[in-house]
Design a protein around this nucleic acid. Structure first.
Lengths: 169, 169
DNA sequence: ATGGCTGCAAACACTTTGCATCTGG
DNA sequence: CCAGATGCAAAGTGTTTGCAGCCAT
């Protein structure tokens, strides 16, 4: 069930990032390496806040401002994507050089799963074309109740009783 | 090109809203009616900010706090939907009692078009099921370059020259 | 009359920015 | 050595909330 991908070669990713920095004439600082390393080791989707927390202790901590700046560099570098799941904060996800995918989220526990569907991808291209658009990107998020909630009757955050209408948000 | 829907009976919509308020034991205040009326007359997608601006002059203006509160009531009432288009502010759209639809947005001028695709809707249900989810909602947004930009070489906000990588955001 | 509503301003959460200092190349 | 990076704190957005006074019911 859990993505069993073996740490898609963090070293290679770090090397790519360093190359990008070099190519752009940006400096390879300890903060950038630490942030990048942590980013590449994050299991899945995370917020800047979570990233900042995860970066604590190592050698003190890195300033939020700096983390925001580094994250934005990584997005430009194409090694990180940004998601808007309808919550306050943006979510990020490192790109293991692999395929694009969409997301399905649990409205109760916030669990996030991924999926790919070629038919939908094709449809989107077709639709964009029909409307005269040159498709550049898209975001598809499904929201529902996760398998755990359905089978055990409750998941991390909510349970059937008080889940009255958490879906409203 | 522009949605030619003839003001889907604002009076009926207002009546529905009033009924909802009554049913819920909420008060029918002048602010609520003014906001609702304006909401129903808004052409398409708007932010709370735009709504507040549009509400000015009539009889002074309505406090943002109040507008936020009324908008949230209307969402609960099911007469307004909330969208996250990846920008800072949330976008709203009144529901004319009609069909659900998805969006396609221009990365340059911010233009927003709508579309419905049953095949994709079905696919989503299937995908959710395959992942053990009970699908409650979804959001599908396509981003690209609009027809105007493609045909005339420029649209409201940007033009091919400086549009270098506005897609990065 | 009275409890919900409004308006104001302060509080909030997330993100960005100005500036002095520090550091990689 | 010096442009670019960092950290801090202050400033910005967009949105929410506490509270006193107001108005539908």
């Amino acid at each position: 069930m859990t993505t069993p991908q073996p740490q898609v070669d963090i070293h290679k990713q770090l090397a790519n990032f360093s190359n990008y920095l070099k190519k752009k004439g940006l400096k390879i600082t300890s903060q950038r390496l630490l942030v990048a390393e942590k980013v590449f080791s994050m299991e899945s989707h995370f917020t800047v806040d979570a990233l900042a927390e995860a970066l604590k202790d190592r050698r003190g901590e890195i300033s939020r401002a700096t983390i925001y700046r580094i994250v934005s560099v990584m997005v430009e570098a194409g090694q990180l994507t940004e998601h808007n799941f309808g919550q306050n904060a943006k979510y990020y996800e490192h790109i293991p050089g692999q395929d694009h995918h969409d997301h399905i989220l649990c409205l109760d526990c916030g669990r996030i799963d991924e999926f790919v569907n070629d038919a939908i991808e094709e449809m989107q291209l077709k639709i964009a074309g029909e409307h005269g658009y040159d498709l550049a990107d898209h975001s598809l998020n499904l929201y529902g109740k996760c398998v755990e909630l359905r089978t055990t009757g409750s998941c991390a955050r909510g349970n059937p009783d008080d889940s009255g209408e958490s879906a409203s948000n």
